[in-house]
Amino acid sequence: MPEITYLEAITSALRDAMRDDRSVFMIGEDIGHFGGPFGVTKGLIDEFGPERIIDTPIAEEGFVGACMGAAWMGERPIAELQFADFIACCFDAIVTVGAKTHWRSGIKLPMVLRAPYGGGVRGGPFHASSPEGWFVGVAGLKVVAPATVEDAYGLLRSAIDDDDPVLFFEHKGLYRRLKGEAPATGTRTPIGKSIVRRAGSDVTVVTYGSGVDLALRTATAIEGAASVEVIDLRTIWPLDLEPVLESLGKTSRLLVLQEAARSTGAGNLVLSRVAREGFELLDAPPALHAPIDTPVPFAPELEDGYLPSLDSLTRALRDLLDY
């Protein structure tokens, strides 16, 4: 099997979904001939034409709202944001129309919003955020964040199949760094199922998106000193906590790792639910390893210290194990 990147997996999922289903189309800024700011849609216009790869004016409220109207009429639109930070611009359409319509009326709004998120690319306060936490807890939405090449493909295919609005947070830092075997055409990763990525017995790291790669690298680095179990949430809302509680039955120690600032993100919901549902399983206070509550800084000296790293995670794990 050939190796492909996380970015290529997303492109393949888009291509395969559009080949399989006429009702799938894409809309976003500069996604046509230009291929989007990261080149995710490059080449798709050659195969599918401008009727299915639609360049729009700069209008996040407009084109995300339009996706909901098209979805009402039975289409399966996929909108691309240039950066996840711009999800603030279409927040209303997502949480007001997208989230509440089915519950109020039974009308389905099958649409996917792709949001390239995350730091490590010197994007600064407006191009490196992890805003996924804003949507955690919003009834009616599904929020996914793939951490592997296989899931980049499989979760996107499932998101496109899904009858609810799905927010797809794809990590910019993983786009070209992460490589893996090309997933078989048509592979689906189920939405709403977290997964154990690495088995261990001393401590459970619960994370998603870019945190998974970091946790796995750190687990390998400290292999001799501690046995780390890594759980990838994959779907961060609604949360699938079962595998976490099962794991804590074994390790009794929990560290939640996320790239979103410490008071937002998906991690806090994991912590509160473990406090309520898994208190008796714990031997130490659960830890949260996440950046401080500021916007993402630009200068390398600042951003590198802000984001979780192999060193900082190693220290955090050591503190937890030493408790």
Partner: peptide, 24 residues
């Protein structure tokens, strides 16, 4: 009939999207 959304303005792009589906 799409259910009214209180946040005024939201239905404008929404109806554009429905029309886009017809055009497509």
């Amino acid at each position: 009939v799409f259910p009214l959304v209180s946040m005024l303005g939201d239905l404008c792009p929404l109806i554009v999207g429905a029309a886009l589906a017809f055009k497509r």
